[in-house]
């Protein structure tokens, strides 16, 4: 049964990682505009000349 404790511990750490990733994605504005990026990805040569 002790192995379950280890497994659940690992899964908890992974889940925390995903939670942080989700919070970061919201914070960086990825959920502000849910439509335009889906179109933008289809354009070629969108690289910026600096």
């Amino acid at each position: 049964m002790a192995v379950i404790a280890v497994l659940i511990g690992c899964s908890f750490i992974i889940a925390v990682g995903f939670l942080l990733a989700f919070l970061w994605s919201v914070r960086s504005g990825q959920y502000d505009d849910k439509y335009t990026p889906s179109v933008r990805i289809l354009f070629d040569e969108n690289t910026k000349q600096s």
Partner: peptide, 12 residues
Amino acid sequence: RSLYYKIGVAGF
């Protein structure tokens, strides 16, 4: 955004 944060936390 704050609603999304809350959902993330609650879901987790």
